[in-house]
């Protein structure tokens, strides 16, 4: 101590003190400030908010601790991806019972959706919300995506993703306006009647290829107006109604006598 005291008038003393002070402040800041990595994962506060939201909006059907009831499945282990898909597309909370939950304007904002997803993810491990990279159509191969889409998706969702009817009042929705994130999540989690296509069945790259193929459809069809992409029904209707009317009109005009 004596030696330290003797050197307190040393001319380097202020610099050393300043350095020590800076280190102390920096250390304390580093210890208390939330790092970006921590911000990405769910905080306990988020989970708490999510739990409250869940009990207010979802527990009626899914049970007070999301264990499921007779009318709704258990949410333990469905993962954040399933919650984000269902809530951000407005499918959940359901407005009324029906063959399947239809998409509608979302009831929860982004923070509430994230909190709900964090809460359900905390109940059991499940598919996480995909990163922006995983769903980036520019990194996918649209041709590969078409081959995958044709085998796995086109029978229900139509060859260009225009959607189609199923039995018992169910329907495969159009994918034209579905966000890339939601398309990925739907394959990953299998919402409603849709089966699950996990990463073993369609690889993560394959899913991105499918998103690339669907994004390609937004550029429109080289053959002009696709009439909703519905195929022979829409095309046949126009051919019969419009084409036949024009032909009959032409025949009448040719056969009519000039005045």
């Amino acid at each position: 101590m004596k030696a330290l005291a003797a050197r307190r008038h040393h001319r380097a003393a202020p610099v050393v003190l300043l350095l020590m002070a800076l280190l102390a402040v920096g250390g304390v800041y580093a210890a208390f400030a939330p790092s970006p990595a921590q911000a990405a994962t769910a905080s306990t506060a988020d989970i708490e908010t999510g739990k409250k939201l869940f009990q207010a909006n979802c527990a009626t059907c899914h049970g007070p601790s999301a264990e499921g009831t007779d009318i709704a499945p258990s949410l333990v282990g469905v993962g954040a991806a399933a919650v984000d898909f269902q809530v951000s597309t407005g499918r959940m909370p359901m407005a009324m019972d029906g063959p399947q939950a239809p998409a509608k304007p979302p009831q929860m904002n982004e923070e509430q959706t994230a909190a709900l997803a964090a809460y359900v993810a905390s109940l059991g491990a499940g598919p996480a919300i995909p990163t922006d990279d995983q769903v980036d159509p520019t990194q996918g191969d649209a041709a590969e995506g078409m081959a995958l889409f044709r085998t796995n998706c086109a029978m229900c969702h139509n060859a260009v993703g225009a959607g189609g009817a199923l039995s018992s009042g169910k329907a495969a929705p159009s994918l034209m306006n579905t966000s890339d994130r939601n398309i990925f999540q739907a394959m990953e989690t299998g919402p409603g009647p849709m089966p699950v296509f996990n990463d073993a069945v369609i690889t993560a790259e394959g899913k991105r290829d499918i998103i690339a193929f669907l994004t390609e459809q937004d550029k429109g069809s080289a053959g002009g107006n696709p009439l909703g992409g519905l195929g022979p029904v829409a095309e046949g209707l126009w051919a019969w109604v419009l084409g036949l009317a024009v032909m009959i009109g032409g025949a009448v005009w040719i056969g009519a006598k000039s005045s």
């Binding site: 085998t151 796995n152 699950v196 996990n198 073993a200 069945v201």
Partner: peptide
């Protein structure tokens, strides 16, 4: 495909 990789509700062509 490994049997263990399929989850309930999965479909594979």
């Amino acid at each position: 495909l490994k049997a263990a990789d399929l989850t309930v509700g999965s479909v594979a062509h």
